[in-house]
Structures are given as C-alpha cells and as structure tokens.
Design a protein around this nucleic acid. Structure first.
Lengths: 188, 188
DNA sequence: TGAATTAATTGACAAATGTCAATACGAGTG
DNA sequence: CACTCGTATTGACATTTGTCAATTAATTCA
C-alpha cells in the first residue's frame, strides 16, 4: 500500500488529509492464478492498482478468446469503457499469476475527485499515461505484417513475451498460435 | 468560440474568472483543405477544438501514408503521444476540408490546470472520453476480417465513411484501396 | 466547358495467414 | 518415475488480402 501512495505522491503532492483518506479507503484483494477480477456482463465498479502479479484482459469472439492486453505490477487497471462509462463490460479480466491488488470503487474515486481537488491532477496524469499507451498499442497493431507486430511487442514489452503464454500473445497480435509459432522459429 | 465555452461548461461549471481567461487566451485558426496543422517531426504544442471542418491524422510507413484517425467539428484534438509527452510527433495532421479551429498552447493549458482547479475536472472528463474512443478503435481494428472492420466503421461513424476519401479509410482499416473497393461492391 | 489530375474499380496472380490434424514438449502430480 | 493435461510446434492445404496493371469515374481548375 505504501508503494501505491508513494507512486501517487510522485505524480503530485497529496495533503495529509488525502493520504489518510486513501489509507482507510483502499482495500486489498488477493487473487490466485485463473481467478476472475471482472466477468463480461458486469460493470467494472473498482479501479485497481497491481502490487504483485499479472492479469489478462480478454473478450469472446466467435467462441474464441481474444486478449486485449496484459497488466502487471505497478499498473493501474480497469476495463476502460466499462469503468468510465459505468456500464456492463464486454471484456473479462483474469489472473495469469497470483496477484496482490489494492482498489477503490468508482463512487469513492468520484468522492475523492470532489473533496480533494489535488487528486484531479493525479487522475489526469494517469489518464494521459494510459491513453498514450493505448495509442501506442493502436500504432503497433496497425502494422500489417504479424512478424512486425510481434517484434514490436518483443522490443517494447519483452517481459510480457516471457511471462504470457503464447496463445494469449497470439490472440492479442491478431493471429493464430500456429502463425506465432512459425514467426518465433523463423526469428531464432 | 461560444460553442466551445458552452461545451466545456456542459462538462463542469466554470468560474467567471476562468471563462474570461479562456476568452482572451483562445486563439482562432483557419485552414484550407490540404493545409497542415502538424508536421511529423514537430512537437504538438497546441490543443485544438474543431469548430468546423474535418482533419486527418497519418504517418508514413514504407513510403505509404497510413491514416490513424479522422477528427471533425466538435472534437478536441492533439497528436496524443506528442502533446502529452511534449516530444516530436511521428504523425502529421492535415485538413481534409476547410476548417475553423480554436486552440491554446500546452503551457497555457498547464497554467489553467494550476490556476483554475475546476478545469481539471474538464480535462479529466475529456481524457476519459477520448481514451474510451481509443480503446473502441483498438477493439474494432482487432477484428480479423477487413469486412468486419469496415462494417464497424460504417455503423459507428457513417458520417466519416461519407466524408473521407476511400483511400484514407482503407489505410485506416489496414487494407488496400482495392480490397476496400471489393468489400464495398460486395456489400451493395 | 474541357483537359488534366486524382480517386475508385476490376482482373490476374502472388504472398501471407488461417484451418485442421498430427505430433512433440513440459510442468505438475500421484 | 511415468502419466496427464495444457501448451507449443509442424505439415498440407484453403482462404484472405496484397500487388501490379489496366480501366473507368469523379473532381479540379484553367
């Protein structure tokens, strides 16, 4: 929890009141591998900080799972459209490794924005960061050749390539396991 | 300009001081079709509101233009990575139609965030909106078949399909003009 | 208005990726 | 240690999309 507070403080100073409020509001959650953090159809009502572990965001397309992204320790996560719009999520979030998370609810976040104005700076900064990352993913997925997309992932997220099973990387890259396997063998 | 102030006010009330400050800070810019708003290599130093017109964001990939998105009247626009990171842009922005824009600089925006705290609510709300749209574009571009991607675009942005030349839509969809042309003739 | 330019369509063939089936590998467990 | 189950690899062939070239349609502007 200290780790999270330090992270937030590194973005913008927080009053003692805000820090105390966060300390009593933040809740801890532990997940085992394969546990769900969010199931498609539910609205994403919490925003999480990952202290330890790795999670996968995915949705179902023609009976197949399509991974949309992977999130690890140090990340703040939600199902974007569902959380900000407070409507049912089309995607699910599941743990790929055992996880330790801290979270607050959507309503608690709105309360903090209203009562601790300085937190708006932090919220804005985090949104700018994750929006930028989303645009980078768009850029990388627009690459026509699947090999380029894989190489981009390998260069910018080498840790994910090591930690995430190939089949999930393949669906994220928009190709089949077989094609990814052939790309990998070609690159070695 | 009134239109922009009303739009911002609809997101969150603004003090008279803020409104007056905006009124003197906002500058107007007019573009003719084919004029550039931003050239690759420059940092995106302004944030624009489009009052009238249509613009295209694109970058060069292997001597070809790849369109990343299209923005029209009512939109707030920047080259995301370049503006928020204040670093050189890999993409350019060019007018597809004659445009009327209002803008402020990055520094002026930071000044407003510091001196008019209520504006942080507005900035956050706009970021949530455009971040969500970015995620929706990711979702649509992950569709494997180009026909599905085109149909998604047609359903969610029918106006763009009418206003943007096919070759730019094709490069946005990650396909060639020829493939898009065949998809369109199949759908009719 | 008409010539020049740009945009869109169509055809024939090539390249990339998907599908399906078989096989190999590897971590976890009795 | 061997068995199992999920994961990854490989091969043969089908489908989708790209490439190049030619043609038609639409727009621009002198």
């Amino acid at each position: 929890m200290d780790e999270l507070l330090k992270y937030l403080e590194s973005i913008h100073a927080m009053s003692d009141g805000l820090k105390e409020h966060l300390a009593v509001t933040l809740k801890e959650k532990r997940l085992l591998r394969k546990d769900y953090l969010l199931r498609a159809g539910q609205a994403s009502r919490q925003i999480y900080f990952i202290s330890r572990g790795l999670l996968r965001c995915f949705y179902i397309k023609e009976d197949q799972e399509v991974s949309s992204w992977f999130m690890k320790e140090g990340d703040v996560i939600v199902s974007v459209e569902s959380f900000f719009g407070q409507k049912p999520s089309y995607e699910s979030i599941v743990a790929l490794e055992d996880c330790l998370l801290y979270y607050i609810t959507y309503d608690e976040l709105q309360y903090i924005y209203r009562h601790f104005p300085e937190f708006n700076f932090i919220g804005r900064a985090l949104l700018e960061k994750y929006y930028t990352l989303s645009e980078q993913r768009l850029y990388s997925l627009r690459m026509q050749r699947s090999q380029e997309r894989y190489e981009y992932l390998l260069k910018h997220h080498p840790d994910l390539v090591l930690r995430v099973p190939m089949k999930h990387l393949a669906s994220y890259l928009g190709i089949t396991e077989e094609t990814l396997s052939r790309i990998r063998s070609k690159l070695n």
